[in-house]
């Protein structure tokens, strides 16, 4: 009670600008199912904030609550100092929403999609004509301006969806899995566009289950699972905190991975500080040996006469953090 009233009183104050998003103890229930179970976070203006988690973790539901299209069961939320449930249109006027699946208007041309979307915000046509040109250039779609949406490739559609969401020059951009389903080249083009937006001061909130995307784009992120926050921090900080510097991936064949894990665990625990060994995760197809010095660990394993079918040394990633925190991999 005291927290929420403190939040409300501090939000509209003139001295410090209200955070872009301020969510406290969000709960969303659909009947018996709890999609979001007490999530609290705050996003500063100009920050790039990520919600990470597997499918069904509650990311999209959280996004929908921010975007004022889903009601909260419990908790408080302020977007740019306004409650989305009380001021839906006004909150949405400050947002740009990029949903998981492109929902472009197939009955309109590319250019009409941008202009019409701007009209929904009540923007004047004169502004929109110029803005549409600008956004078409931004999305590299000038040559497709008068095409039908269905003629666009997947990557083009995604870029158009993003361009369209920028028509009102939003303060906060909500991106729900922005690059899922795109080929690597299209992803990099998109990342480049998003990075430019970030530079220009737009607040980005994105959900993803791609770790590389989170590392590329997010200043700060929360790891969500089963509707609750498991960890929070910068990508590098999370890796430092929850994983070792390096990881050794070993394959012994599907049947033998588990039993090898026990043997190796004993071996490496006794191997001394050289390897900086932490622990082993057993995945169905491989073992992940967490060690600060993975090369040393591998040497120790070879020296003891173990012969893995393949071995790979790499740096820790957010994927490892996630595995550590939830005991399962991200894309399942």
């Amino acid at each position: 009670m005291s927290i929420s009233s403190a939040l409300e009183s501090s939000a509209p104050s003139d001295t410090a600008p209200a955070p872009a998003i301020d969510a406290t103890s969000l709960v969303k229930e659909y009947g018996d199912f709890t999609a979001v179970d007490g999530i609290t976070f705050s996003v500063r203006r100009g920050e790039s904030f990520g919600l990470l988690g597997p499918n069904g973790a509650g990311k999209s539901t959280t996004m929908r609550m921010i975007a004022a299209v889903a009601s909260r069961t419990e908790g408080q939320m302020l977007v740019a100092g306004l409650d989305p449930e009380q001021h839906g249109p006004e909150v949405r006027a400050r947002l740009g929403v990029i949903p998981q699946q492109d929902n472009l208007d197939e009955e309109l041309t590319v250019r009409e999609n941008i202009i019409m979307y701007g009209r929904y915000f009540g923007l004047p046509r004169r502004y929109l004509r110029a803005k549409a040109d600008e956004l078409l250039e931004f999305a590299q779609l000038e040559h497709k301006a008068n095409s039908r949406v269905e003629d666009l490739s997947g990557g083009m559609k995604r870029r158009l969806t993003i361009a369209r969401a920028l028509v009102n020059e939003p303060e906060v951009l909500l991106l729900d899995e922005p690059t899922t389903g795109l080929d690597p080249q299209a992803r990099h083009v998109l990342w480049d566009r998003l990075f430019r937006l970030k530079e220009s001061g737009t607040t980005l909130v994105l959900t993803t289950h791609h770790m590389d995307e989170a590392e590329q784009l997010c200043d700060r992120l929360v790891v969500v699972d089963h509707g609750a926050i498991m960890a929070e921090g910068t990508p590098a900080g999370l890796i430092r905190e929850h994983s070792t510097r390096e990881v050794l991936e070993l394959r012994f064949g599907t049947d033998r991975n588990a039993e090898q894990a026990k043997t190796l665990e004993e071996l490496l625990t006794g191997a001394g500080p050289d390897a900086d060994f932490s622990h082993i995760e057993v995945l169905p197809d491989r073992l992940l040996v967490y060690a600060g010095q993975a090369e040393s660990a591998l040497e120790a394993i070879h020296a003891a006469g173990h012969k893995p079918m393949t071995s790979l040394v790499r740096r820790s990633s957010l994927e490892d953090v996630f595995l550590r925190l939830t005991g399962r991999s991200l894309i399942d």
Binding site: H87, G88, E90, A93, A130, E134
Partner: peptide, 18 residues
């Protein structure tokens, strides 16, 4: 032409503004 920033849009407030 380049647009000159988003023009202000007046908001309906009061009853049913949501």
């Amino acid at each position: 032409q380049r647009s000159e920033g988003v023009p202000p849009v007046a908001f309906r407030r009061g009853v049913g503004a949501n």
